[in-house]
């Protein structure tokens, strides 16, 4: 366990801890800024439609968070996975007495730590947003909604990882972030029956059935399974073996 933490710390230092912290802060700030601007711009409409309440505000900020999260994840995986490929350093790592599983597990854990850090800041930003907009809310409901976002939004970084594994080029994979964004933009023209089976869209779908605990639970399980499957693919993938 201590060596696992040690590898994580060294990995964090290698990428640049300052750079990573800055990335998390900027992503959360952009989400906050975009959400606030949109709500202020559409304030009259939201008020007239009775949408100035916690679920609507959280779903708006979650919508913007998907965009920033896609970019955040692309940069994150670039540093964790593709950066090694760019520098040819897989050949060093994989020819040293360290298990490939342990090494990749550390990278995934580090990504998860950053994802949690992003979510903490994003939750704080959403909290501030609700306060600014003078919306009454129940703290436990707020935390529940944020936790649902945390679980279903995991499909975004893991979809991004899939691009990195498929195209084997960090910069190209980064630019493919546009595919994630494209999916969100075309969501409205896809029949709901199809959209609900695309895990990447769970983060957006989830707000439609937010009252239905059973469906929400299914979305959460599906998202976690999706992440686990891509994690397992990344462990087995030949990307790291120069095939």
């Amino acid at each position: 366990m201590s060596s696992f933490i040690n590898i994580g710390k060294v990995e964090f230092q290698k990428i640049g801890s300052f750079k990573l912290i800055l990335l998390i802060i900027i992503s959360a700030l952009i989400t906050f800024g975009l959400s606030l601007s949109f709500i202020l711009y559409k304030k009259e409409y939201l008020l007239s439609e009775g949408l100035m309440e916690i679920q609507s505000i959280i779903s708006i900020s979650a919508y913007f968070a998907t965009f920033t999260l896609a970019i955040f994840s692309a940069i994150n995986w670039y540093y964790l996975i593709s950066f090694e490929n760019k520098n040819g350093t897989w050949s060093i790592l994989l020819t040293k007495p360290i298990s490939k599983f342990k090494l990749l597990m550390t990278k995934h854990t580090l990504h998860l730590v950053m994802y949690i850090a992003f979510n903490i800041l994003y939750t704080t930003a959403s909290f501030i947003l609700l306060i600014i907009m003078n919306i009454e809310f129940n703290i436990s409901e707020f935390l529940k909604l944020q936790f649902i976002f945390f679980l279903v939004a995991i499909t975004i970084p893991y979809s991004q990882l899939l691009f990195h594994l498929m195209v084997k080029n960090g910069l190209l994979a980064f630019s493919l972030t546009i595919i994630i964004l494209f999916f969100f933009l075309i969501k409205d023209i896809i029949p709901d029956i199809f959209a609900m089976f695309i895990p990447l869209l769970n983060v957006d779908n989830v707000w439609i059935d937010i009252k239905n605990t059973r469906i929400i639970t299914l979305y959460c399980i599906e998202s976690i399974l999706y992440g686990v499957i891509i994690f397992l693919i990344s462990i087995k993938n030949n990307y790291y073996t120069y095939e």
């Binding site: 290698k14 520098n87 040819g88 350093t89 897989w90 050949s91 060093i92 020819t95 040293k96 007495p97």
Partner: peptide, 15 residues
């Protein structure tokens, strides 16, 4: 890998 050291392709490093 406790007994083998290698240098494959061009030198790899973290710039």
């Amino acid at each position: 890998f406790n007994h083998v050291g290698c240098f494959i392709d061009s030198p790899s490093y973290y710039p």
